[in-house]
């Protein structure tokens, strides 16, 4: 029998990847590019981290950190497809995102078959070790990412320009901002963060990558961006709430007062909350005005 207080490390373990990915989604959407590929990019990151760690763990003690770095790079590389399609070629952002999601599931399991001759990566022996208080370092990584994203978006001129691109790209362009370049960088940042988020899941919550490792975490992150009203503080709160719901769905059997709820109740919670708040906020425009719209240069 455990109480809610003892669950804090487990909850933070679930919150960290959702928050990291949601921050990626935040940066991308504030620049005007909706990134529904978060789910797929997390899969790419998780696969990369699992593979790198399994192959390197016996040769270097730094293996986990190398794996996290490789995952961020892989996420960044794959997100360039999204940037090329939706920023450079003005494609529908939802279509290229969907393409990446399909590609990620197929591609990662395909590579598992090639590298490990099975539909999952070889399990590694030792995952990430929790630090003081039983809290995994991924929680601190998420906190650092949160502060950095806030600082970048609200305390640097570049962040101000990025937000301008998401609100009114034509106005931003007339003020001398290179809209395409800014959006490209924002999408790449979101890819790197999503990759890192996927890696965080793999090194803390499981021992290998399978096609079910991510299991909707990327879409929960996307929901956290909406529910958090496209602001760092809100996104952090939303991720905390949604991560706790996911953790409760898993650990509730150990908690007396929650045992009688069906486990689906907590799994479903983030999605219902998101729809209800979208309805409640309707008419108030929290979303970046130009999110989802390709930027077409004015007639010249």
């Amino acid at each position: 029998m455990i109480n809610l207080f003892d669950m804090i490390p487990s909850i933070l373990m679930m919150v960290a990847p959702i928050l990291i990915a949601a921050l990626g989604g935040l940066v991308s959407e504030r620049s005007g590019v909706v990134n529904i590929a978060l789910e797929g990019l997390m899969g790419v990151g998780a696969f990369t981290a699992a593979t790198v760690h399994t192959l390197l763990e016996s040769s270097t003690p730094m293996s986990i950190w190398i794996a996290l770095g490789a995952a961020a790079l892989a996420g960044l590389a794959i997100s360039s497809i999204h940037a090329l399609a939706s920023v450079t070629f003005n494609a529908d952002q939802v279509i290229s995102g969907t393409g990446i999601n399909l590609l990620a599931t197929g591609g990662t399991v395909f590579l598992c078959q090639i590298i490990f001759h099975q539909e999952r990566t070889e399990p590694y022996k030792l995952g990430m070790m929790p630090g003081p208080g039983g809290i995994y370092p991924t929680a601190w990584i998420a906190l650092v990412a949160l502060v950095l994203v806030w600082y970048l978006l609200y305390r640097r001129p570049w962040g101000f320009r990025l937000r301008a691109c998401g609100e009114h790209p034509q106005a931003a362009a007339s003020a001398g901002i290179d809209v395409r370049r800014t959006r490209w960088i924002a999408v790449l940042i979101s890819g790197a963060l999503a990759g890192l988020a996927g890696a965080s899941i793999v090194v803390t919550e499981t021992i290998q990558y399978t096609m079910y490792t991510i299991n909707g975490a990327g879409f929960i992150a996307l929901a956290a961006v909406s529910f958090g009203r496209w602001k760092p503080k809100g996104v952090a709160g939303a991720s905390l709430l949604f991560g706790s719901a996911v953790a409760l769905a898993i650990y509730m059997v150990n908690i007396k007062i929650l045992r009688d709820f069906p486990p689906e109740f907590f799994s479903i919670l983030p999605y219902i909350i998101t729809i209800v708040t979208l309805v409640a906020f309707s008419g108030k425009d929290y979303a970046p005005a130009a999110a989802g719209q390709p930027y077409e240069k004015g007639g010249s």
């Binding site: 399609a85 393409g99 590609l103 395909f110």
Partner: peptide, 25 residues
């Protein structure tokens, strides 16, 4: 042939559809 190649082909097709605008350009 790893069977996931079929998902990769589906994914590639969708990505190429999204690059259509590029063809138009």
């Amino acid at each position: 042939i790893p069977k996931e190649i079929t998902w990769i082909i589906s994914g590639l097709v969708v990505v190429f559809v999204s690059l259509r605008a590029g063809f138009r350009m």
